[in-house]
């Protein structure tokens, strides 16, 4: 094992993506990697049959790998043996292949599993005007609701910059109860497809059908769209029931695993 200097990392990265490794969780674009390098956020460890990149996030370290087998996990164990930290390994897989179950190879603090759901345009007539587009004045309460509902690891909580962007592009709709927000939904549209980034219901309004109302609002402004996707935690049964039973989403057999080591 050898620690690679910053100057060599990009070269190793570009070399590695041409090697056609069998397994990888490097889903990012090369430009993103360049940005991380500029920020001095990435370190790299090179082995005979694998390469491992560690990306420093605020409160954890993200682990990226490219390898022909799962031997990389043993190399990873050596790297982290003496460094106390939280490591996050994110893997998207089609199906549920056993080889990707890192919990059999390394002790994990926690495993979070998300499933991707898709609605192929089977939307029932949905008409409602009970919603408002969230504005800049809602930024603070949106942030508070997100931070108290979702987890920084895995839930892909938007940054403040992203949140401002969503507000400006009218991509957040909320349901209000007097002056307070009962719930909101953030979506990202691409021509004929729409992706629900986040659906959040204020704790004191849960169990009152707010989530369903938000979906009704969402579909009422997406009547001409043909495809709708979202990621949902596999253990969030109420949310899965809402999406699958009420809004015709179907499981795609596509999983996102978050292994927290």
């Amino acid at each position: 094992m050898s620690m690679i200097t910053k100057e060599q990392i990009y070269h190793l990265y570009t070399e590695a993506i041409q090697k056609k490794y069998r397994y990888s969780n490097c889903y990012f674009q090369p430009q993103r990697f360049e940005e991380w390098l500029k920020e001095d956020a990435v370190s790299c460890y090179s082995f005979e049959n694998s390469i491992i990149f560690l990306l420093n996030e605020t409160d954890h370290i993200k682990v990226f790998f490219m390898s022909d087998d799962f031997e990389w996990i043993n190399n990873f164990k050596i790297i982290v043996e003496n460094i106390q930290n939280i490591y996050v390994i994110e893997i998207v897989t089609k199906g549920d292949p056993e080889c990707y179950d890192l919990s059999t190879k390394i002790r994990c603090r926690e495993i979070i599993k998300y499933e991707r759901l898709r609605n192929g345009g089977e939307i029932s007539e949905s008409k409602t005007d009970e919603y408002f587009y969230c504005t800049e004045k809602d930024h603070k309460i949106l942030r508070e609701m997100m931070d108290s509902t979702f987890r920084p690891i895995g839930d892909h909580i938007p940054s403040d910059i992203e949140l401002d962007g969503f507000i400006k592009s009218k991509s957040i709709i909320g349901i209000y109860d007097n002056e307070s927000i009962a719930g909101f939904i953030i979506f990202e549209d691409t021509k004929k497809t729409s992706y629900v980034r986040m659906l959040c219901v204020n704790e004191k309004y849960r169990g009152k059908g707010i989530g369903n109302k938000l979906m009704q609002c969402y579909f009422s402004i997406h009547k001409d769209f043909k495809s709708f996707t979202l990621w949902c935690r596999a253990d969030n049964t109420p949310a899965l029931n809402l999406y699958i039973n009420k809004w015709n989403y179907k499981k795609e057999n596509l999983y996102n695993y978050i292994f927290i080591v």
Binding site: V92, K191, K192, L254
Partner: peptide, 13 residues
């Protein structure tokens, strides 16, 4: 891709 018929996860599949 531009029309949103395929996203990055569809490309994996």
């Amino acid at each position: 891709v531009e029309d949103g018929y395929l996203d990055s996860f569809d490309i994996i599949s």
